[in-house]
Every structure is written in structure tokens, then in C-alpha cells.
Design a protein around this nucleic acid. Structure first.
Length: 513
RNA sequence: GGGAGUGUAGCUCAGUUGGCAGAGCAACGGCUUUUUAAGCCGUAGGUCCAAGGUUCGAGUCCUUGCACUCUCACCA
């Protein structure tokens, strides 16, 4: 295909496609001129570069005077990064270089770089988006800007595509998601958020490991998709001629590990659910699940509160965190309220008063005819309660029928020892005292299967067998990592915390025409 | 799947009642050794998302389709 002449028709034509042909041709021309200078335009290993932020905080800059260069060893500096701003003033060029710590200004002058082909002539050919490595003496300009005055310049990678507008950056949401590799360097706050995401997950791991939890990996391709009520993705293994499901939850495998004697385990990884997309739902999402033998849901509640409060302390500027148009207050202790109590508080219905609840459901426009009691109750709960749970709130003791994997309360078997954590009206965590009675578990599965269509109705027999060998009583917890990152970093949409969210492919490309 | 909105230069966006397609940045040529979104002079750049329709005339009005955003529904 001729990339230079074909014109793309789509409005969402990404940067760097055919539509940019003339810009790419111009940049290709510069590339040729660089090669003519005898310069390799795609560099190679570049050792000893210091982060821009570290250079800015050098002690030798403390007393430095405006307009001066710091001579000698202590003034030497070396850095590498992408050209994000470029000001060519004739025999002097100022460039703002961005690495992933931040930006620093470098100064290139004809005097310092001289007539050498890879010096001044190369400098004059640099353009926005190129990746360079430089070394030189540190100093401050007349306007007090910290600057590396370059005596050695290397081109590490030529940028052949037109970068986005330098002031507004890339703001088209669709383009940002499709070309995250541009979004990340064009919009520093995006980089910042993903660096935070990485740090938050590291902190969670450190917290759990310090408490004796071991990280494990369980299958993502499963022949029975269990552990949650959700529609799975189907895939196929050729050699075994076997249909497999992408997991909807790791739960049943992690509990097998409890049976095996791993007493404290966790897994942070992807689940896949074949359902609708929204700003709180991506088809693949990251979940922390952990299990602790001999614990129960109260232990999990304390643990959840501790982890998240630690994260707030480390990654948020105060206990009051802005999210969308609301403020979430993480001050401890968090509210812990019974499911039935909240239902009464916000819907006015007693949980046992089924006629009143059905009436409320109709009032809310829910189609309750033919639905099971618990489903109607939960419908009313979701419609009336959830949006009001702004500050972190543990909702506990769910109707047992909604919790097939949960141990029931000894003194009141209508309810199960389960809690969910809500923050900003979103469900963030789900936990229970795990059911370890194989007979009850099997019965619950049977009931659950009756409500599903046949194609998906498979029981995980081996899981029942595992329980028959004896699983220690345990507490289990799941935390939606993406949503947690959202509330901690103030991201409105789950797509802002997932590097490459699922998007519909652009049609022309998908058809390969 | 329903409803609302958006789609104009590489990017960010204007475009009046239906009457010659616009700006800033980026690009290209020139000047410039202290700039900070550098500045000044000049040049080029368009399938106005696509297809059809109404009209003497459509970026603008209508229909259909595509993509995205918001929202509702489905869904832990």
C-alpha cells in the first residue's frame, strides 16, 4: 500500500497515518539530510543520563548566578528525552526535553557545538518529537532558567510523525486512548496518573507481603468460568480442541490453594467479563483477591480499611479527596452498616416487609413481576442506597440468597457473612467469610445453575471435591484495582486508569481495505 | 439496545439567516546568541466523518450509516 498518496477518510484518523503524509515526507527528508551528515538517526545505548528532576535539584545550583555557567566537574550534566518545545533563535537554540521525571531546558549554541557534522548542523535539523541525549555544563540563563549548555549532542531516535499541538496537547479523547503512546508524553498529567497507578499497586504488594501473604498466579483460561455471576469470553485451544473461558474471577482456584495449605495468598491480575462498557466497567479489569485461612469477614473489613487508608496517606494530599464533583472523606473509622439498616434508611422499607419492597420497586420503575424476593430487594437497594454511599462505607450481612459462596450467619441463616465497600457510590470491594461446607456449596451451585441458561450451566465439580478434602475456614477479599485508582487519583472514567482500554477498531483498518 | 450531544487543516478550535473555507499552534522559506506556548516577515496546507436527498446554491437543512462522549438499560 502506498502510504504517501492514499488519503484516509475517517475523522478519527490517528496521528501518523496516511493523512499526515506530507508531514511525514518532510520529516523523511530531514532524516535523509541527517544521514548525509553521517549521523545515525536511531542512536543506540546511551549511558549515564540523569533524570531531569535530579539535575534540577543539584546542590551546585543553589548559589548559581543568573547568566552563569557552572564550570568544572560539579557542573557536568547528562540527560536524555524527547523534544517537547523548541525555540530556534538563529545561532542559539533552546530546547525543552522531557524524560519521565519531568522537563529540563537545554541550550545549543553554534559556538559550543562547532562545525562538526554531529554538532551544530545536526542541532539545526532537530525538530519536535525527536529523542536526543545531551551532555554539557549546567548553568542558569539570564531569566534564571536551569539549562544544560550542550557540548555533546546525540540523536537517539528520529520522530517521523507530527506531534500534537504543544500548548493544548492531545485532547481528543478517542485519539488519546487509541494512541496512548502519544498521550503519555504530550500530557504530563496522564503520565503522572499511570506512574501513580504503578506505585499504588507496588504499595499494595508490599503491604500484603509484609503481612505474610504470598502472591500467586492462577489460570486465566478456565474450562469452567466460576467464582462470580458474569458472562465470560469464550476462546479455543486448537491442539486440545477445547473451548475455554477467560476467567471472570480467580476465586475458585485461590480457594483450592487454601485447601492445599497456602494460608495467606493473593493475586493481582485481570478478570474478563463479557458485558457492557461504562465509565466504571472495562471488559478486562484488574482485581486484587486475597484469602486468609482461619480469618473471617471482620478481619477482611479491618484489612481493607487499613490498606486503603495507607494508600490515601501515601498518594493523596489529604484525607478529603476530590472525585468527580464530590469530596470523599477517608477519615477513620469508616461507617459499617447492615444491609437491612441501609435499606431502611434510604428506601424506608423494612427488609422483611416484602409487599412494601415490591411496591417500592414498582414505584422505582423496576419490573419486579416474577422476580425472586432477594433480587427485588437488591434492585431496590441498588436504586436507593448505592448513590448515597459517598464516604467509604462497609455494607454487611447480605441476604444469603445473593451469596452462593458465602458462609451464613450462625444465629440468623437468612443472612450471609458478606460485606461490600462503597466509595463515591461505586462498589470497590467485596468480601466474605468463605463457605467451606461442601454440601451447602454444592446445593448453592445447583440453585444458581437453575437460574442460568443451559449453555453456561456447568458446575465446577472439582471445586466441590476440593472442599470435601477440607478447606480451612477463611476470609476472602476482592478489591477492584481500577476503581480504586480512580478514586485515589481523581480519574472520572475507568478508561483514564487503564493504559489501553478496549475500543472499537476503526472500520477501514479492520476491513484491511 | 434506547435517548442526548459531537465529528471542519497534522493538533486545538471558530464558522452568523443556506451565499467565495477561517484563526492559533505545527509545517515550509527568510531574519534573529538568553528564549520560556520565543518573536518578526512571507508561503503552503481542506473528500467540512461517509452516502444519499432538498435547493439556483449545503460546512450549515433532511434521511441513513460510521466513530466517539454523556446518559439510561443490561451487568458485581
Amino acid at each position: 500500500m502506498d502510504l504517501t498518496d492514499k488519503e484516509d477518510t475517517g475523522s478519527g484518523s490517528p496521528l501518523g497515518t496516511e493523512r499526515q503524509g506530507r508531514f511525514e515526507r518532510q520529516r523523511q527528508e530531514k532524516l535523509s539530510r541527517i544521514k548525509e551528515l553521517g549521523v545515525e538517526p536511531y542512536g543506540g545505548r546511551y549511558d549515564g543520563a540523569e533524570l531531569a528532576e535530579d539535575i534540577r535539584h543539584r546542590p551546585c545550583l543553589q548559589g548559581a548566578e543568573k547568566g552563569n555557567i557552572i564550570e568544572g566537574e560539579e557542573g557536568k550534566a547528562k540527560c536524555a528525552g524527547r523534544i517537547v518545545l523548541l525555540r530556534d533563535i538563529g545561532k542559539l537554540i533552546f530546547i525543552t526535553v522531557r524524560d519521565w521525571s519531568g522537563t529540563i531546558q537545554i541550550g545549543l549554541s553554534k559556538k559550543l557545538l562547532g562545525p562538526d557534522a554531529s554538532g551544530w548542523p545536526l542541532a539545526k535539523l532537530l525538530e519536535l518529537g525527536d529523542i536526543i541525549g545531551v551532555s554539557g555544563q549546567l548553568g542558569k540563563t539570564r531569566t534564571d532558567e536551569i539549562t544544560v549548555w550542550v557540548d555533546n549532542l546525540r540523536l537517539l531516535s528520529k520522530c517521523l510523525c507530527q506531534p500534537p499541538e504543544k500548548f493544548h496537547g492531545l485532547s481528543d479523547i478517542d485519539l488519546r486512548y487509541r494512541q496512548r503512546y502519544v498521550d503519555l508524553w504530550a500530557n504530563p498529567e496522564v503520565m503522572e496518573r499511570f506512574k501513580n497507578r504503578s506505585a499504588i499497586i507496588r504499595t499494595i504488594r508490599e503491604f500484603l507481603q509484609a503481612r505474610g501473604f504470598r502472591e500467586v498466579e492462577t489460570p486465566m483460561m478456565q474450562s469452567v468460568a466460576g467464582g462470580a455471576a458474569a458472562k465470560p469470553f469464550v476462546t479455543h485451544h486448537n491442539a486440545l480442541d477445547l473451548d475455554l473461558f477467560l476467567r471472570i474471577a480467580p476465586e475458585l482456584f485461590l480457594k483450592r490453594l487454601l485447601v492445599g495449605g497456602m494460608e495467606k495468598v493473593f493475586e493481582i491480575n485481570r478478570n474478563f467479563r463479557n458485558e457492557g462498557l461504562s465509565r466504571e466497567h472495562n471488559p478486562e479489569f484488574t482485581m486484587l483477591e486475597l484469602y486468609q485461612a482461619y480469618a473471617d469477614y471482620n478481619v477482611m473489613m479491618d484489612l481493607t480499611e487499613e490498606i486503603i487508608c495507607l494508600l490515601v496517606e501515601k498518594y493523596c494530599s489529604s484525607k478529603q479527596v476530590q472525585f468527580r464533583d464530590i469530596t470523599v472523606d477517608y477519615t477513620r473509622p469508616w461507617r459499617r452498616a447492615r444491609y437491612a439498616e441501609l435499606l431502611k434508611e434510604y428506601s424506608g422499607c423494612e427488609i422483611d416487609d416484602i409487599p412494601a419492597i415490591r411496591a417500592k420497586a414498582r414505584e422505582l420503575g423496576l419490573d419486579e413481576a416474577g422476580m425472586d424476593e432477594e433480587v427485588v430487594i437488591n434492585g431496590v437497594f441498588e436504586a436507593t442506597v448505592e448513590d448515597n454511599l459517598i464516604n467509604p462505607t462497609f455494607v454487611f450481612d447480605y441476604p444469603a440468597a445473593l451469596c452462593p459462596l458465602t458462609r451464613r450467619k450462625k444465629d440468623d441463616p437468612k443472612y450471609a457473612e458478606r460485606f461490600e465497600l462503597y466509595i463515591a457510590g461505586m462498589e470497590l470491594a467485596n468480601a466474605y467469610t468463605e463457605l467451606n461446607d461442601p454440601a451447602v456449596q454444592e446445593e448453592n451451585f445447583q440453585i444458581q445453575l437453575r437460574g442460568q441458561d443451559e449453555s453456561m450451566a456447568t458446575m465446577d465439580e472439582d471445586f466441590i471435591t476440593a472442599l470435601k478434602y477440607g478447606m480451612p475456614p477463611a476470609g476472602g477479599l476482592g478489591i477492584g484495582i481500577d476503581r480504586l485508582i480512580m478514586v485515589l487519583t481523581g480519574a472520572t472514567s475507568i478508561r483514564d486508569v487503564v493504559l489501553f482500554p478496549l475500543l472499537r477498531p476503526i472500520k477501514d483498518q479492520a476491513q484491511g481495505k
